[in-house]
């Protein structure tokens, strides 16, 4: 069971949250001009690192807000959590 800290509600069990996959995936700037390949990259292609991973979680049975978590996918250690408008702690990889 992961213990995840919601930036608004504090530390809660994983069962209060919903997972949202990789964080910091930018929406295309000019969606109308994308090729099918570029859409595929945006919609389906994600990083899958072994180690620290910035990912989205939603406090679905709490405040229902989305936020980001930096978690080590090898050890399951939750390193930190931060708001969506904050940059990834320690920079982008």
């Amino acid at each position: 069971m992961l213990l995840i800290t919601c930036p608004w509600c504090g530390p809660r069990n994983e069962t209060e949250y919903h997972y949202g996959g990789q964080a910091h995936v930018p929406h295309p700037e000019n969606p109308g001009e994308l090729t099918d390949e570029q859409w595929a990259a945006y919609v389906f292609y994600r990083d899958n690192p072994k180690g620290p991973f910035a990912e989205r979680w939603m406090h679905s049975i709490g405040c229902r807000r989305w936020f980001n978590v930096l978690r080590d996918t090898a050890t399951h250690e939750v390193l930190t959590s931060y708001r969506l408008d904050e940059p990834r702690p320690g920079g982008n990889r």
């Binding site: 069971m1 992961l2 996959g21 990912e55 050890t75 399951h76």
Partner: peptide, 13 residues
């Protein structure tokens, strides 16, 4: 388990 992981274990729930 819903999250990505390489730890060869999942959550108890």
């Amino acid at each position: 388990d819903s999250y990505n992981g390489y730890g060869q274990r999942g959550s108890f729930h």
